[in-house]
Simulated assay, not measured.
Amino acid sequence: MSNVKSVMIVGVGGQGTLLASRVLGSAMLSQGVDVKVSEVHGMSQRGGSVVTYVRYGDKVYSPIIAQGEADVLLAFEALEAARYLPWLKPEGTVVVNTQQMDPMPVVTGVAEYPKDILGKVREQGVKVVALDALGMAEEAGSSKAVNVVLIGAMAKKLDLPKEVWIDTIKETVPSKFIDMNLKAFELGYNADV
């Protein structure tokens, strides 16, 4: 890797975005790559947006990703993908969970959840990898494994061998959840999307 790559991880509080950033950062560090991670917590404990920047390469000076700089946008929810799309490079890839989580204005009836969000994202000309990560996580054994399903789908877009991801997951998640998370990773990695 001779240049810096940027991954922006976005979701709603409680979805596991921070674990995803730890796995990504640890996987890159295990390969001797310089990594910078910055977590931005909105109203995460109340279901608000959570954003994590992960930048890696030969030498990374700042973890912050400016608009138009992200190589990959890893979105745990469709509306978050649309919200943070301006940070993606024109040739970038969005890896997105098709799950819909209503934000507070929708819950309270003040607004409606936008229709066909992923269609609008695709209209921007970026590559979109959309998968039912929630369904796959439940198939793996827990809805909490959405993050690892998405890591699996993203892993094919990054330049690390599959074994590095598997080893990192084994080192990062609690031992009693390793098998479930490895199954979740495989489901995301092998998703036909």
Results as ranks from 00 to 15, higher is better:
Ser2Cys: 14
Ser6His: 14
Gln15Asp: 05
Thr17Phe: 15
Thr17Gly: 02
Thr17Glu: 09
Leu19Trp: 07
Arg22Met: 02
Arg22Ser: 13
Val23Thr: 02
Val23Gln: 06
Leu24His: 09
Leu24Phe: 08
Gly25Glu: 00
Gly25Ser: 05
Ala27Leu: 02
Met28Arg: 08
Met28Leu: 04
Leu29His: 01
Gly32Arg: 09
Gly32Ile: 05
Val37Gln: 11
Glu39Asn: 13
Val40Asn: 07
Val40Gly: 05
His41Ser: 02
Ser44Phe: 11
Ser44Thr: 11
Gln45Leu: 07
Val50Cys: 03
Val51Thr: 08
Thr52Ala: 08
Val54Met: 01
Val54Arg: 02
Tyr56Gln: 10
Ser62Ile: 15
Pro63Ala: 04
Pro63Glu: 07
Ile65Thr: 01
Ile65Pro: 00
Gln67Asn: 06
Gly68Leu: 14
Glu69Ala: 01
Ala70Phe: 05
Asp71Thr: 10
Phe76Cys: 05
Ala78His: 00
Leu79Pro: 00
Glu80His: 13
Glu80Asn: 06
Leu85His: 14
Leu85Val: 06
Pro86Tyr: 09
Trp87His: 13
Lys89Met: 06
Glu91Trp: 11
Glu91Met: 14
Glu91Gly: 12
Gly92Cys: 11
Val94Phe: 03
Asn97Trp: 09
Asn97Leu: 01
Thr98Arg: 00
Gln99Leu: 02
Gln99Pro: 00
Gln100Ala: 10
Met101Glu: 10
Met101Lys: 06
Asp102Gln: 09
Val106Arg: 12
Val106Trp: 07
Ala111Leu: 14
Glu112Trp: 12
Lys115Gln: 15
Lys115Ala: 11
Val121Gly: 00
Arg122Gly: 03
Glu123Asn: 14
Val126Phe: 15
Val129Lys: 06
Ala130Asn: 01
Leu131Lys: 14
Leu131Phe: 06
Asp132Arg: 14
Gly135Asn: 12
Met136Ser: 08
Ala137Glu: 15
Ala137Leu: 02
Ala137Ser: 09
Glu139Ala: 08
Ser143Tyr: 07
Ser143Asp: 15
Ser143Thr: 15
Ala145His: 08
Ala145Asp: 07
Val146Gln: 14
Val148Gln: 00
Leu150Met: 08
Leu150Thr: 05
Ile151Ser: 03
Gly152Val: 02
Ala153Glu: 01
Ala153Cys: 12
Met154Gly: 06
Met154Ala: 12
Lys156Ile: 04
Lys156Val: 03
Lys157Tyr: 08
Leu158His: 12
Leu158Lys: 10
Asp159Val: 12
Asp159Ala: 06
Asp159Lys: 04
Leu160Met: 12
Leu160Arg: 10
Leu160Ile: 10
Trp165His: 15
Thr168Lys: 03
Lys170Pro: 02
Glu171Lys: 11
Glu171Tyr: 13
Pro174Lys: 15
Lys176Trp: 09
Phe177Arg: 06
Phe177Ala: 12
Ile178Ala: 03
Ile178Trp: 13
Asp179Ser: 07
Asp179Leu: 01
Met180Thr: 04
Lys183Ser: 02
Gly188Gln: 13
Tyr189Thr: 04
Asn190Lys: 04
Val193Glu: 07
